[in-house]
Design a protein around this nucleic acid. Structure first.
Lengths: 252, 252
DNA sequence: TCAAAAGTGTTACATATACACCCATGT
DNA sequence: ACATGGGTGTATATGTAACACTTTTGA
């Protein structure tokens, strides 16, 4: 025991602080044109063997947090350069059977099509689960997932992150369905269209859907540069829908 | 080296994972009726001795994250039951001179008056710094502070958290000043008043200011129960002010 | 009487909401 | 022909933004 570290109310050997393990867990969301899904794998650790769990791994000592998240994501999905943001750190003392393992949760948004392509030749242990049909998960992963879903629901109203879940070219109705799945509510078609188009962040591709059993829709893509410019000028992306009400005079 | 832990692409002794240190840093915001402030102390660690730093400490092995944050806050301010929320985890590999110390940053909102009362008889090493006059801080604390300030600016528009910085009874103008300090912008008095009163979350105390060199204002307090009820009914607190603009037809 | 903040309304404009029908395509 | 989603407009209600003067108090 060498150097001492003075934390003001106790004096302890420096070495004795270095006894935590850290892991990174990714909540990987995807959208299959019908509903929001989460990518889960089967746990291999006692006492959770066989139970579904988020994808995650231990952090390496010399590894940056974001790098670990990207590594884990690539390992499980084959995908790089994916939307990936730190969400929250979960550290309940008893959350892990091996000891004090604190985990840093990330949210990832991926295009399921890309995932399917990149995992074609992988031993693929992961499965997409409908967001409303999540089983009991290993560790505290139900908590983590719930928190991250809430985060996503908030974020999707305040920033144009939903596009990370859609193919490059998409129809306005697909975008609307995405919002409906995430937020779990119906949205009026005309109002949605009006609002999203008035934002000037979608650009028509001058293409239409092919081979659909109905009138083919125009395809659009998200113009990130335009969004950035607007944002710099103080404009803020907001999508809210009439689920809320305003306070009435007579309380609630 | 006993148990092995299979993380799928490497096999490593379990013990070897438990070599991280964790700390908790609190960004403590306060408001002195004129401007937003942050509580800083002088660092005692090489190579930052004498430099200002956030208040923080090492996490103990058997300590919950929130408990550590509360402990640190109480140790430095004497205050309990303070607004305190996890903000983000910072873990750059080279951020700490002692090794891989990952820190979990918390935001605290305190009433400076309460702080002054509770620290009267403490050896008081902490000082309030004006948010626009932050010196170079120890470690990566400038990053952390910047991030947390951004977080606060966002949060204050979406949830009624500002009240945690005000005394129990306050005037509407004080509330407005608070918003102006945090957001760094002027707000129209009549519009602010109209909006905040229409929310029905303030209740008049039937008291007025005493001994002020101007017409004394009515005092209000925040009715948290009413806010909760409104929120349950789907209503959302939002305060935004005309800094933003809407996208124009001809790009930006 | 001065300084400082309290308090108060209206108008113009922009945005949000509610709502129903015909169109184009594949099967 | 039918099922499916594509695509469109308007009227109304609500919310936001801009703006100036009188009042009350302590010094």
């Amino acid at each position: 025991m060498g150097v001492k570290y003075n934390t003001d109310h106790f004096l302890q050997s420096v070495e004795s602080y270095f006894n935590f393990a850290l892991s990174v867990d990714c909540v990987v969301f995807g959208f299959d044109n019908k509903s929001l899904k989460v990518l889960l794998i089967k746990s291999k650790m006692e006492p959770y063997i066989g139970q579904w769990s988020l994808i995650g791994d231990m952090l390496q000592t010399d590894e940056e947090l974001d790098a670990a998240a990207n590594r884990i994501l690539e390992y499980r999905t084959g995908l790089k350069n994916v939307f990936l943001k730190q969400a929250k750190t979960f550290g309940r003392v008893d959350r892990h059977p091996l000891g004090r393992v604190v985990t840093i949760a990330y949210v990832a948004l991926v295009r399921i099509k890309d995932y399917e392509i990149s995992t074609e030749n992988m031993q693929n242990e992961a499965h997409w689960h409908h967001i409303n049909q999540i089983p009991e998960l290993a560790f505290d992963h139900n908590n983590i997932l719930e928190y991250c879903l809430e985060t996503l629901r908030k974020k999707v109203r305040e920033e144009p992150v939903g596009f990370a879940l859609l193919p490059d070219k998409f129809t306005i109705f697909e975008l609307q369905s995405l919002y409906e799945s995430i937020l779990n509510e119906k949205i009026d078609k005309r109002n949605f269209r009006k609002k999203i188009l008035s934002m000037q962040i979608l650009e028509p591709c001058n293409e239409t859907q092919k081979g659909v059993p109905h009138r083919p829709a125009k395809l659009y893509h998200f113009n990130r540069d335009k969004y950035k410019k607007l944002k710099q000028n103080g404009w803020v992306f907001t999508l809210k829908f009439p689920s809320g009400s305003k306070p009435s005079e007579n309380g609630v």
